[in-house]
Simulated scan of single mutants.
Amino acid sequence: MRYSIYLLSMLLLVNLAGADVLINEMLANPATDWNDNGQVGGMDDEFIELYNSGNESVDVSGYSLKDKVFRSTPTEYSIPNGTVIGPGEFLVIFVSESGVYQGNEGDAIMLYDPTGDLVDEKEYDAATEDVSFARIPDGGEWRNSTAPSPGKPNQEAAS
């Protein structure tokens, strides 16, 4: 009985910790070399940033990202085993790694936990070059940011 209660408690803590991970910034229409591969712009510079707003590290192994508007088949990216986001830290995933494209004319990006439950979602209508969708402050309300900041705190927003 004690073992069952312990196991249930651990599962609840993992689920509660997972609630602290959210989509924090997205760049759908890049015109700059954001992934530092020497090529300016292009879809490979699109990124999705996750943020751990909690006080504990969260293992995001098996979490998945999906886009709603896809080119030919639905795209799903599973975050690799051993991926942990520390408290107040970021995880940046470029489309060159994930294959999860963000449409310039609008789309929705969804984050699911390993059990398939929706953790977070950001839907948008259109994307301007080098203007990201960002929570400002980190983990806060969605705004358009004229200063994309993959892996760094979101600070500047345009109205």
Rank of each mutant, 00 (worst) to 15 (best):
Thr128His: 03
Ile5Tyr: 09
Gly106Thr: 14
Gln39Glu: 12
Ile109Gln: 07
Asn144Gln: 09
Pro148Asn: 04
Asn104Glu: 14
Thr146Pro: 00
Val95Gln: 04
Asn52Gly: 08
Ser64Val: 10
Glu121Cys: 13
Tyr6Lys: 15
Gly140Lys: 06
Glu89Trp: 01
Asn24Ser: 07
Ala19Leu: 08
Ser149Ala: 14
Glu76Trp: 04
Ile79Arg: 00
Glu89Leu: 01
Val119Asp: 07
Leu91Tyr: 01
Asp120Arg: 12
Gln155Asn: 03
Ala31Gln: 06
Ser4Phe: 08
Ser4Trp: 08
Arg143Met: 15
Val21Met: 13
Gly99Phe: 04
Gln155Ile: 00
Asn29His: 08
Pro150Met: 05
Gly86Lys: 08
Met1Leu: 15
Asp59Ser: 04
Asn55Phe: 11
Thr73Pro: 00
Pro153Arg: 02
Gly140Phe: 07
Tyr101Cys: 01
Gly38Cys: 04
Gly106Phe: 09
Ala108Ile: 14
Asp59Lys: 03
Ser145Asp: 00
Lys68Asp: 07
Val95Cys: 04
Val100Trp: 06
Asn55Trp: 04
Glu123Ala: 10
Pro74His: 06
Tyr77His: 13
Asp113Ile: 12
Ser64Lys: 10
Gly54Ala: 10
Gly54Asn: 12
Glu156Asp: 09
Pro114Ala: 06
Ser159Arg: 10
Glu25Gly: 13
Ala127Phe: 03
Phe70Leu: 04
Asp138Asn: 15
Asp36Tyr: 15
Gln102Ala: 08
Thr75His: 15
Leu12Arg: 12
Glu129Ser: 06
Glu89Lys: 01
Val131Gly: 03
Asp67Pro: 02
Leu50His: 02
Thr83Met: 03
Glu49Tyr: 09
Ala108Thr: 15
Asn29Glu: 14
Asn144Val: 07
Val60Met: 04
Gly116His: 10
Ser149His: 00
Arg2Ala: 07
Val58Tyr: 11
Pro80Lys: 07
Met1Gly: 13
Ala158Gln: 14
Leu16His: 09
Ser53Gln: 10
Thr128Val: 03
Asn55Thr: 09
Gly103Arg: 05
Gly62Thr: 11
Val14Met: 10
Lys66Met: 09
Gln102Ser: 11
Pro80Ala: 07
Val14Cys: 10
Asn81Ile: 08
